[in-house]
Design a protein around this nucleic acid. Sequence first.
DNA 1: TACACATTGTAGCCGCTGCTACAGAGTGTT
DNA 2: AACACTCTGTAGCAGCGGCTACAATGTGTA
Lengths: 234, 234
Amino acid sequence: MACLCEQIAGDDIELSPICIGSHWIFQSLDPADIKALSHEALRKKSIKGESLFLQGDSADEMFLIKGGRIKLSKVLEDGTELMLDIRKAGDFVGENMFSEEGLYPVSAVCLEDTLTCGFSRSQFEELVLQHPKVGLQIIKTLSERISSLTDRVGSLAVANIEDRLYRVLKNVAKEHGAQSPQGVVIQFPLTHEDLGFLTGAHRVSITRAMKALKEAGKIILEGRRLILPTLKIA
Amino acid sequence: MACLCEQIAGDDIELSPICIGSHWIFQSLDPADIKALSHEALRKKSIKGESLFLQGDSADEMFLIKGGRIKLSKVLEDGTELMLDIRKAGDFVGENMFSEEGLYPVSAVCLEDTLTCGFSRSQFEELVLQHPKVGLQIIKTLSERISSLTDRVGSLAVANIEDRLYRVLKNVAKEHGAQSPQGVVIQFPLTHEDLGFLTGAHRVSITRAMKALKEAGKIILEGRRLILPTLKIA
DNA sequence: TACACATTGTAGCCGCTGCTACAGAGTGTT
DNA sequence: AACACTCTGTAGCAGCGGCTACAATGTGTA
């Protein structure tokens, strides 16, 4: 029998092979719980450009991404947009729902057509109380997110745009890239404007920095594919 | 009977009134567990300038700060130092121990004489498994840390140093400040160099920015005390 | 194919900030 | 009181990067 997700997704979304039951966070659950959870989870199909939640919305839901890609971004007081992260199938978005404050500090917008499973806060809290191991897993996930953000803070503090851009590209490659004989390949298109949002730099400066990186041999551009030759996936 | 912490601390450290038993994270524990935990916890007195752990050390311990102030900082590849956070009595440091990676991504150095209680990773994992509520509390703490880091990323992306500095000061004031009739007061001394590490800016630029903020009336300098007149503590 | 639109590339100007250097103020110690 | 040291303030120069403007190329659609 086909998974419920597959039925909803249709043909145009390439689904993550990770279904709720087999997701690492839920590994310690009983089959009965998985079934219940799987039933409760609110599946939702979203098209490119749609948002799961917006900065400032009341944060009471968390999403497991089944397929597609979602960007997390933040609009600063002065109106500039900053992209914080790109999440892919198998990742979560909306982990801020656990925080006391109760508002999403960022917006989650689909970069492609996506399928998500939503969970409410109370659902998750109950789950954690009944299955402490799930809690531990979440603690680890959050911990890793903290490390990555700490890294991010470090990146942004680096003055020079060329280095900053390269760090961002390395991170994206590690998260989303594929190993090839030439190096790590970033498969999906990132415009210079996107990279500007990711690095917090002007679009034109990105073009300049890209040129410099190309000339330094740190990146290779092959059509739409961006290759980092010196990088190895962990 | 005096608390064990007080005996160790001696007179020169102003202790947090929060002892293990009454700390919010442990509220759901039985008295017996608290006693056991309190016994196991490794108390340590450190003097100003000493470090609890250094960036790159194997991360297997987490500390509850009983008294004093600890800075978290990170040295970037190019050698510049960046201060990420200042933690005070009642806060934790070393929450990265939960992450898979197993290395502290930052250093924790005492800004004053401090007293801490250390917990090992296995101790904590067991605690979470036996007391899921503790797990939930930790999840909330981590979540908040994520929000604050997200904010931090936003701050650093702001180009202009004056705004960046003001945001940093607001954050410090919210965390460590005291409400007074004139506004929120930051009690302990922060040199321009410290602020440079916090904002990721040059020392001289901080002096410039401070001058501008003073002239704009956004901050007031009264001897060593820094006052943010327009701010209210949440 | 033709057209509209998004994306990338180039150039020039200007302001912010990093950097160095030095002077003055504040603090603590012998 | 004298000294050493840290911290703050000021000045000037140079360079990076933000900004605008425009051209060139790529991409999708009627």
